[in-house]
C-alpha cells in the first residue's frame, strides 16, 4: 500500500504540473482528470474509501464536465493555443514560481521540525462513522452547505443566462439598469 501511495503522489504532482502549464484547455483538463484520479487513489490508501468515490464522481466527473461544457460552448481552437503562447511566455513563470516555492519550503520546514508521526496502519474510517458525524455535530454545516449550493445555483443561472432582445428594450426604460450594462 505504501508503494501505491508514493506512485500515485508522483503521478498527481506530474499531472497537476502538466495541467497548470498546458496551453490547450482540453489537454489541461484531461491532465487534471488524471491528477484527481491519483488523489482519489491516495484517499483510498489513507482510509477514506467514500471520499475517494466522491472525488471521482464530483471532481473528476461533475466539475470537469462543467469545465468541458464551457470550453465547448466557447469553441476555442488553434487560435486559443496561439494566444496562450503569447500570453504565457517562459520568463513569466519565474517570479510566481519562486514565491510559491519559498512558501512551500517554509511549510516543509515547519512540518519536519516536529517529531515524525506515523499514520496508524489501521483500517479505513467506516462510512457509518462519517454519516453519524456529518448528521450529528456537523448538522449546521450541512444546512449551510445547502444554502451555499442554492446560492451557487441561483448565481450561475443569473450570470449564465442569455439576455433576450425584448429584455434589453425593457431595460432601456429603466435607466439605472441600463447604465450598469455595457
Amino acid at each position: 500500500m505504501n508503494a501505491v501511495y508514493y506512485i500515485s503522489s508522483v503521478v498527481a504532482v506530474v499531472a497537476t504540473v502538466a495541467a497548470v502549464t498546458g496551453l490547450n484547455a482540453v489537454h489541461s483538463l484531461l491532465y487534471l482528470i488524471v491528477s484527481f484520479l491519483a488523489v482519489a487513489l491516495i484517499f483510498f490508501t489513507l482510509g477514506a474509501p467514500v471520499i475517494a468515490a466522491l472525488e471521482v464522481i464530483i471532481y473528476a466527473g461533475a466539475i470537469i464536465v462543467l469545465f468541458i461544457f464551457v470550453v465547448m460552448i466557447l469553441n476555442l481552437g488553434d487560435v486559443a493555443v496561439e494566444q496562450e503562447k503569447r500570453w504565457t511566455v517562459g520568463k513569466m513563470w519565474v517570479g510566481p514560481a519562486l514565491l510559491a516555492l519559498v512558501l512551500m519550503a517554509e511549510l516543509v520546514y515547519v512540518l519536519f521540525q516536529q517529531t515524525v508521526h506515523h499514520l496508524p496502519g489501521a483500517g479505513p474510517i467506516q462510512p457509518q462513522d462519517l454519516g453519524a458525524t456529518l448528521f450529528g455535530p456537523y448538522m449546521l454545516g450541512v444546512e449551510l452547505a445547502s444554502m451555499v449550493l442554492l446560492a451557487g445555483l441561483v448565481g450561475a443561472y443569473h450570470l449564465g443566462r442569455r439576455r433576450q432582445p425584448d429584455e434589453t428594450a425593457q431595460e432601456r426604460q429603466e435607466p439605472v439598469d441600463a447604465g450598469a450594462r455595457r
Binding site: 505504501n2 498527481a12 497537476t16 491516495i42 490508501t45 519536519f112
Partner: peptide
C-alpha cells in the same frame, strides 16, 4: 492500509497547493 509518515501526506498537499498557487498567479 498505508503507514506513511503524516508529514509526507501533508507535504504532498503543500506541493499541490503551491502548484495551484503558481498557476493562479501566472495564467491570464
Amino acid at each position: 492500509m498505508a503507514s506513511i509518515p503524516m508529514e509526507q501526506g501533508l507535504l504532498l498537499a503543500g506541493v499541490l497547493f503551491a502548484i495551484g498557487l503558481t498557476g493562479v498567479l501566472v495564467r491570464r
